[in-house]
Each structure stands twice: as structure tokens, then as C-alpha cells.
């Protein structure tokens, strides 16, 4: 067998003229937009900077954060329970879960928030008695028990439960039947199989949309400003209702929301990497 030198050739990659052209157009448009923004007399960067770190704005940020955290924790826990009920063999439990999801996914979050804010108009007092005995354990006016904050947490987490339930159910269904069978063949019971085999694999499917849910939740907390929820949006609203500097204060809120969402995205990326273990793509060990 004889070897011949292959002829020397030069490889010319595809030239992406289109990319240069779009870069030029986008840069031009961005420059025009920035110029319009910065020359506007109503943007007031100084005002934005002034309010960005005011105490009541920071308090609002903290409230927004813990509202998000609490609603997501309760929402995910309740959603997990609803998902399991929805997949249960028991038709009554399936029906309960279905109805809950139907109602809370089928009505606007804003309506739910206002509803819980005005719960006292429906039930003026909250009373807890031992059935058939008349012994009263607890009796208070609704407006005292369900404060603006409690109503906000209730509405946000109940609403989130409905969405989280569907996300988690989807994740569980995405796990191959063969996994459940293999676990069953090893003598693992249904609960153990769910906890040790199905859920860890479902997490890969559940986490990206739950990250999405968390980001949506962070922004949805702005809706509780309608019932004076003391969040970031309520804080900036109460300022611009006094000084009419609407645009700068909305910018303050937007900057904070964007910063918090960016942080959440990083967290999501880290968690996704953790649960990608053992899978070919993104399989970090």
C-alpha cells in the first residue's frame, strides 16, 4: 500500500455577513433609544438614585422577597401533595385535587388577591368550634385575623399550589414506567419508589418550570399592592402618589425586580446542574 500526501487545501468557513449587518442595525437603534431616554427631562436619574436605597424601598424589597419565598414554599409543598392526589388510585382524592386546580388556575390571581383581602365581607367572623358540642375554641373578626399580609400569602400560595401541582404531575409522568417496575421488582413499596426513584428523576423535569414559577411569583407579588401588602410595589406607589414622580419610581421598582430575577436565574442554573447528575447532557458529577 502506498501513501500519497493529500493535496494542501485551505478551508474557508462560511462568512456571516448577516451578523455584521444586524450588529450594525441593532447598535444604531440602541443608541437612538438611549439618547431619547437620557435626554428626556422626566427620567431623572438623580431621583432614581435617590430613592433606590431608601429605607422604605429596601423594606419593600425584603417584603417582596419573603412573600415570594413563603408563597413558593407553601405552593410547592401543597402542589406536591395535589399532584400525588391527582395521580392517586382513589377517585375521591383525584376529584378533590382536580377541583382545587380547576378553581385556582381558572380565576385571575388579581381576583383571588382582592377576594382574600375582602374575606371579611363574606365571613365577618372566623369561628372554630368542636362539632356538635357548641364549645367555641376560637372566635375573632375576620379583618383582625386576615390582615393584608396574611391575605397576600394566602392568595399567592393557594394560586401557586394549582400551578405547581401541574408542573410536578408532569414531572412524575415524564419518568419512564420501567423505573417504577424495576423498583417494584426490588420489593420497594409505592411511597419508597416515589421518594427514592421517581421524584429524583422527575426533579430534572420539574426544576426548569419551577424556576420559571419562582420568577413569575416574584413579579406577581406586585399585585398585592392592591390590598396594601407592604411589598416593593406598594412602597414605590405610595411615594409617587405623593410626589407624582411616577416614571423614576417605576424605574426604581423595575431595577430591583430585574436584579432579583437575575439572582434567581443563577440559583436555578446551579440547582439544574445538581439534578442533571448521571444524565448524558449536562451530566456533571
Amino acid at each position: 500500500m502506498t501513501t500519497t500526501e493529500p493535496p494542501t487545501v485551505r478551508v474557508v468557513p462560511v462568512r456571516h455577513y448577516g451578523r455584521w449587518l444586524t450588529a450594525l442595525v441593532v447598535a444604531g437603534l440602541a443608541a437612538m433609544f438611549l439618547r431619547a431616554l437620557l435626554t428626556s427631562p422626566n427620567l431623572e436619574p438623580r431621583t432614581v438614585a435617590h430613592y433606590l436605597f431608601q429605607d422604605y424601598v429596601l423594606d419593600g424589597v425584603v417584603t417582596t422577597l419573603w412573600l415570594t419565598l413563603l408563597a413558593m414554599l407553601l405552593g410547592t409543598a401543597g402542589g406536591g401533595l395535589l399532584a400525588v392526589l391527582r395521580l392517586s388510585d382513589n377517585p375521591v382524592l383525584r376529584g378533590v385535587s382536580w377541583t382545587f386546580i380547576w378553581v385556582f388556575r381558572g380565576t385571575p390571581l388579581l381576583v383571588q388577591i382582592i377576594f382574600f383581602g375582602f374575606l371579611g365581607a363574606l365571613f365577618p367572623r372566623i369561628t372554630l368550634t368542636v362539632p356538635f358540642t357548641g364549645t367555641v375554641l376560637f372566635d375573632r373578626p375576620t379583618s383582625v385575623v386576615i390582615t393584608g399580609t396574611v391575605a397576600a400569602v394566602l392568595a399567592l400560595s393557594l394560586n401557586e399550589m394549582a400551578y405547581a401541582a401541574e408542573v410536578i404531575r408532569g414531572g412524575i409522568l415524564a419518568v419512564d414506567d420501567g423505573q417504577t417496575e424495576a423498583a417494584a421488582a426490588l420489593g420497594m413499596g409505592p411511597t419508597l419508589t416515589l421518594r427514592r426513584v421517581v421524584l429524583p428523576q422527575a426533579m430534572r423535569v420539574i426544576i426548569p418550570p419551577m424556576g420559571n414559577e419562582t420568577i413569575t411569583m416574584l413579579k406577581s407579588t406586585a399585585l398585592v399592592s392592591i390590598i396594601a401588602g407592604r411589598d416593593l410595589m406598594t412602597a414605590v406607589q405610595s411615594v409617587y402618589q405623593n410626589n407624582y414622580k411616577v416614571i423614576p419610581l417605576l424605574l426604581v421598582a423595575a431595577i430591583w425586580y430585574l436584579a432579583l430575577v437575575s439572582l434567581l436565574s443563577v440559583g436555578q442554573w446551579l440547582i439544574e446542574r445538581r439534578f442533571g447528575r448521571g444524565f448524558a447532557r449536562g451530566g456533571v458529577r
Binding site: D176, G178, Q179, A182, A185, G189, P200, Q201, F279
Partner: peptide, 21 residues
Amino acid sequence: AVRRRDIGMVFQRFNLFPHLT
């Protein structure tokens, strides 16, 4: 589940748990 402990099964598609070594 208790009775299945004594019976081992090997599947056509292996069905190993992908998240475990």
C-alpha cells in the same frame, strides 16, 4: 412488595436508576 423481595427480575431495557451510580 414484601413478596417481591425474594424474586429478582432483569428487564430487556435494563431499567437501571439513572440518577444513581
